[in-house]
Amino acid sequence: MTFKLIINGKTLKGETTTEAVDAATAEKVFKQYANDNGLDGEWTYDDATKTFTITE
């Protein structure tokens, strides 16, 4: 399955995708991506669209 991450950061904005077997796996990938890029914010997830959002 394809999951999307929408980034609404103070300095970084955009989106990225990952292929994962489930939402929990995708969340780990996206949280590592956010950590690697210095993002810290509030996370939301929409199961209907398989989309995570981080807002700083």
Rank of each mutant, 00 (worst) to 15 (best):
M1L: 09
M1D: 11
M1E: 15
T2N: 14
T2F: 07
F3W: 11
F3D: 00
K4M: 09
L5V: 03
I6P: 00
I7W: 15
I7A: 04
N8D: 13
G9P: 03
K10H: 08
T11L: 14
L12T: 07
L12A: 05
K13A: 14
K13P: 11
G14A: 15
E15Q: 05
E15R: 04
E15M: 03
T16M: 14
T16Q: 08
T16D: 05
T17K: 14
T18L: 09
T18V: 15
T18I: 12
E19M: 11
V21N: 15
V21E: 14
V21Q: 06
D22H: 05
D22L: 05
A23F: 11
A23Q: 07
A23M: 07
A23R: 12
A23S: 13
A24H: 14
A24P: 15
A24S: 05
T25R: 12
A26K: 00
A26D: 00
E27C: 04
E27H: 11
E27D: 08
K28M: 15
K28Y: 14
K28A: 14
K28G: 09
V29M: 12
V29H: 07
V29A: 07
V29G: 05
F30E: 00
F30R: 00
K31I: 15
K31V: 09
K31F: 05
Q32H: 07
A34I: 14
A34E: 02
A34G: 04
D36I: 11
N37H: 08
N37F: 06
N37R: 13
N37L: 11
G38S: 15
L39H: 06
D40C: 04
E42C: 05
E42W: 07
E42V: 12
W43L: 13
D46T: 07
D47K: 11
D47I: 07
A48M: 08
T49L: 09
T49I: 15
T49R: 10
T49M: 10
T51I: 07
T51A: 08
F52T: 01
F52C: 01
F52P: 00
T53W: 06
T53G: 03
T53S: 07
I54C: 04
I54K: 01
T55F: 09
T55P: 01
T55R: 11
T55S: 08
E56W: 08
E56C: 04
E56G: 04
E56Y: 08
